[in-house]
Design a protein around this nucleic acid. Structure first.
Length: 484
DNA sequence: CCGGATGATTTGAC
DNA sequence: GTCAAATCATCCGG
């Protein structure tokens, strides 16, 4: 915008007010534009010399100046230059300059006053939040990527596993982060440079055309907005990159590996020996995860996490429940395994029955050998029985108490002998399981669904998951020994 | 390649 | 938060 355009803009209002205002100006000893376009006006330095009292002379003066300004472009360069110099030195110049600035300011404000205050863009905020959450923005390297890793791990639910993909993900994220920060820095630097440049330019020009500080400020704001919109693009593409990386990571995470045989075995052992209440406590899960991870030591494996154990039990429960028949053989196998162990424990307990040394709650996992002869001997038998009963015999059923009772009374001695304080519900369960099957008592109950968790509302209804004591027994249960 | 097995995820109830 | 249930995605033996 050149001076002459400005003048053109302002001249109307100036000319319109000039005549009316001349008298006022004169009376207050300065030029002041008041009225519709300019409020408050600008005070001029006191007029020089004798003109102070000469209103017509002043009016003439202003008209003269305006004329000179308007015609300056018609003249030759030299002439114009000279005139410009003259005008620049004119005593009225600062006043006129101020007035022009003010008028310009007013018109400028009226034009874009509304968009002055830009509220924080919701989309930008969203992007910022996401980048922060992903650890791309945010503090510095360590904390950032750690937070991202933690977030990813939390989202996945499986932390320690697939460390290869994990570190890969982290590396990629760091890369994105680096690029983002370099770009951001570049943008900021460019923005600052450009702003300074423009500011200098405007300041310089403000000597020759009406540019108020406020206008410079506004210009700076415009520049910043422009740059921040560029920044937003950067943020957007960074977000996209993170999303892509993330989805790829998630895909990779979805790739599963079957657990090792040993790990499955351990889990199955626990499951079938706690068939009445296959809800391992947090500690039990940790223990199992640890055990599985140890067993898995030979190469193949990823370690098994607590959440994987939880998944496994979740899947197992549901699948077992859905098709008990299918799992019967497996159940027998593991039951037999545990039974052998329980028998050993019982024998041991009987031997030092006075010694009040309860076996460890996890003793069920100690046994490893010699289970198979028993299994093969029995499994056919039990399998046969189970074909008819469809039972595992280990479910806690409100009405199964008498069955257990009868079994107990029948096998009481060995059972009682095994009593070792809070010793392992697992053994009790397993014994019940095996006993109930091998003894053939189930026949009395015929084919039924009473053993199915499905039929009686599931394990959950029968007992609280973390309970050690089997709650299925009716009042007056014989099982009190299990809890003591 | 197919189909069952299986680990992981999602959804919805509590 | 945990859980059941449904579902997805992959593994793996035939």
């Amino acid at each position: 915008m050149s001076f002459s355009i400005c003048v053109a803009q302002c001249t109307d209002s100036l000319a319109a007010t000039m005549d009316d205002q001349a008298r006022i100006m004169q009376s207050i000893g300065g030029v002041s534009l008041a009225g519709h376009s300019v409020q408050g006006g600008m005070a001029l330095p006191p007029p020089h010399g004798h003109d102070g009292s000469d209103g017509d002379g002043r009016k003439q003066d202003i008209g003269d100046i305006l004329h000179q300004i308007m015609t300056i472009t018609d003249q030759s360069l030299d002439e114009a230059q000279a005139k410009k110099h003259g005008l620049n030195c004119h005593r009225m110049k600062p006043a006129l300059f101020s007035v022009l600035c003010e008028i310009k300011e007013k018109t400028g404000l009226s034009i874009r006053g509304s968009q002055e205050e830009d509220p924080p863009d919701p989309q930008l905020m969203r992007l910022d939040n996401m980048l922060l959450a992903e650890g791309v923005a945010g503090p510095e390297k360590g904390g950032g990527s750690a937070a991202a890793a933690a977030a990813a791990a939390a989202a996945s639910g499986a932390a320690g596993d697939n460390s290869i993909e994990h570190s890969d993900y982290r590396a990629k994220l760091t890369q994105i982060r680096q690029i983002y920060h370099t770009e951001l820095e570049k943008y900021e630097q460019a923005c600052n440079e450009f702003t300074t440049h423009v500011m200098n330019l405007l300041r310089e020009q403000s000597r020759t055309r009406p540019i108020s500080p406020k206008e410079i400020e506004r210009m700076v704001g415009i520049i910043h907005r422009k740059f921040s919109s560029i920044q937003m693009q950067l943020k957007q593409s960074t977000c996209e990159a993170v999303m892509i990386l993330r989805s790829r990571f998630l895909d990779a995470r979805r790739k599963r590996r079957n657990f090792s045989k040993q790990a499955t075995e351990i889990l199955n052992e626990y499951f079938y020996s706690h068939l009445s209440n296959p809800y391992p406590s947090e500690e039990a899960k940790e223990e199992l995860a640890k055990k599985c991870s140890i067993t898995v030591s030979q190469g193949v494996g990823s370690t098994i996490t607590v959440s994987q154990v939880s998944n496994w039990f979740g899947n197992k429960r549901i699948r077992y429940k859905k098709n008990i028949g299918k799992f019967q053989e497996e159940a027998n196998l593991y039951a037999a395994k545990t039974a052998v162990n329980a028998a050993h424990a019982a024998a041991a307990a009987v031997q030092n029955s006075q010694a009040n040394s309860p076996t460890t709650p996890n003793s069920g996992f100690q046994m490893k050998d010699e289970e198979f002869q028993l299994d093969s001997a029995e499994s056919k038998n039990t399998l046969l029985t189970n074909m008819f009963t469809g039972s595992s015999g280990s479910f806690n059923l409100p009405n199964s108490g008498d069955m257990f009772l009868s079994m107990q009374s029948l096998n009481g001695d060995s059972y009682q002998g095994a009593q070792v304080g809070a010793n392992v519900q697992s053994q009790v369960d397993t014994l019940r399981h095996v006993i109930s099957q091998t003894a053939g008592y189930n026949d009395a109950f015929g084919r039924n669904t009473m053993y199915s968790p499905h039929a009686n509302g599931g394990w959950q209804d029968a007992t609280t998951p973390s309970s050690v004591i089997s709650p299925t027994e009716g009042p007056g249960s014989v099982h009190s020994e299990t809890s003591n």
